[in-house]
Design a protein around this nucleic acid. Sequence first.
DNA 1: AAACCGGGGGG
DNA 2: CCCCCAGGTTT
Length: 290
Amino acid sequence: MSALQPNQEAITAWFRTQARDLPWRNTSPWGVMVSEFMLQQTPVRRVLPRWEAWLERWPQPADLAQSSLAEAIRAWENLGYPRRAKRLHESATIITQTFNGQVPNSFAELRTLPGVGEYTANAILAFAFGQRSMVMDVNIRRLLARAWLGQSHQSPAISSIERALAIELLPLGDQDAASWAAASMELGALVCTAREPLCSKCPIVNDCNWFSQGQPISEIPRKSQKRYEGSIRQERGRILKLLRNAEHPVKIFDLAELAPDHNQFETALTQLLREGMVHENNIGYSLPNS
DNA sequence: AAACCGGGGGG
DNA sequence: CCCCCAGGTTT
């Protein structure tokens, strides 16, 4: 049995008529960068209003760099993973101080920014600068695994086979490659969804190796899902106790003493900000080693 | 490469 | 309760 070869042109043609009108598809490099930070592990629908507000308030990296971290965390609202707000704020500062206020347009420079990994760097290159780059998000992985490889699930890490396939499918021209990234991602997000894919609406249903084999279900790799609510409650208690017992208004939280675990501290602090139990004038805090 | 991190919403 | 979301960082 020879494997089917899904038609990439059918996907880009589908994209031209069915793509969502997302605001970060026609914006500045900074707008793209903000969207990519917000979209890390967060659905498009929930990002949209916060992205609009963020770009209106901080149209350029230097604008965000001039605001406090506390304001950035507050504007993040309930997007989740508040560490991303901190990383975005730090990145804006680095861009302002080191890159003349402009989002860098090379992979190596982008990777120096906190919160920019392989995916985000390539996504910024493709979507902000129209460069040919291998963009592999969860949607594209799923589409390639199903349609090209006939597999229902992927291993936790990107395999060499997936990587080679993604590179092989990348069109040669810069703009064509960037368009392919957007189109394949959109098809994965709207049609080739994780649960209940809409195969009847798929432009490559007849070329899909997974569909043609009857959508076989392979073993699902389970990711550990540990919970740390208890630790977060503990951090909340420490923060509130410090505020309550302070003889003077607390201006600096020294994380080195207050919070051995930065992530849980940030989570707890974000909760308290949202609940109005901590006010931004009181939360300038310093970080050790960063 | 594998382990760790651990927000929020939908089904 | 389990699963998913346009991942990143650390070891």
